[in-house]
Design a protein around this nucleic acid. Sequence first.
DNA 1: GTCTATAAGGTGATAGAC
DNA 2: GTCTATCACCTTATAGAC
Lengths: 195, 195
Amino acid sequence: MARTAGSHSDITGPRIRDAALRLFAREGYAAVSMRRIAADVGLQAGALYNYTPDKQTLLFSLMEGHMTDLLAAWETEDKGATPCDRLRAFTQFHIRFNLDRADAVFISYMELRNLDPANFRRLEELRRDYERALETILSDGIADGSFAIRDPKIASLAVIAMLTGVNTWYRAGGRLSLPQVQEIYWDMVRSLAGA
Amino acid sequence: MARTAGSHSDITGPRIRDAALRLFAREGYAAVSMRRIAADVGLQAGALYNYTPDKQTLLFSLMEGHMTDLLAAWETEDKGATPCDRLRAFTQFHIRFNLDRADAVFISYMELRNLDPANFRRLEELRRDYERALETILSDGIADGSFAIRDPKIASLAVIAMLTGVNTWYRAGGRLSLPQVQEIYWDMVRSLAGA
DNA sequence: GTCTATAAGGTGATAGAC
DNA sequence: GTCTATCACCTTATAGAC
């Protein structure tokens, strides 16, 4: 495909981000060079620096973008009337949203150690916001008697770990469809919450 | 501490492995150089090659060693009479064993993508053996009526993901002691299994 | 906005002295 | 068994031509 010099600035940026996301997820931040990302997009390495000040900022912006997307999406979908409805919505939302962005999910907790300290703190903040969203649902359900949970903070971490684990094995076209997986996990989460 | 040339061959090997384990866990396989590992042990880089043929083999042997230790340890501890007893033992074993070897656990699923294809397959095999150990307990419990689980294969993956998640937040001296954490998770696993 | 060329330094692994 | 020295190559990032 022909490329006219200087005419694609608005699509080159996203193409660089897409390539970086895929390569970082597949091989790891430290193992992927700027030359490799550039080659994937059809550029020379130097051209990348028109779009990011450095490699670290590219990584961080991918991770931060994923987490803010996640938080915004859940805020939009959190519409249940009862704690039980909301927990069900959270379970199904988390599975679907994370499967749709497997590369970003993978990076967002595999590459934490490659972040500068300030960037790391920012990402931990966003992660905790998300955990707190679930914890609040669980606490509300304990308060109104719909859940039997001993420690809602630990339970929120346990549920998120369990749900995120789907990404490690689920493949479209496998034994179970996405709705079946969502249903099986909702069964388990409901039991775990004593609902 | 003084080091006499040629007199410590039997302790240098383990020291190299310890340093590599810690550095790989903290900064990632790709980000850690052989020079850095050598410096941590007080050697020059070339000396490492008396103990490993290459960097890849060093990584793999750390990961394989961890998984075979895990399988052997569970085989020794799997002594419960009923599925419910065995599930409780598994829950508490997994939490304790993994917390005791946080670096090895971290590496063993963060660095999978840095393994050669043959090494990757070998490690997946070991991981599946462990998952199957739990799945068998769950299936036995379904068969004798002590558990109410829809899909024992999925449930085994969910439980392992949930339990391994403890490693991401638990710190000795924090709000909860290890026995408290084990008790809280056993509560959740028991509910999830419908026991 | 992209290119080529380059700076300054790090990489895994090996050879041969001791 | 460890050292020093080295090979061949890769790394991030920048400068300046176009």
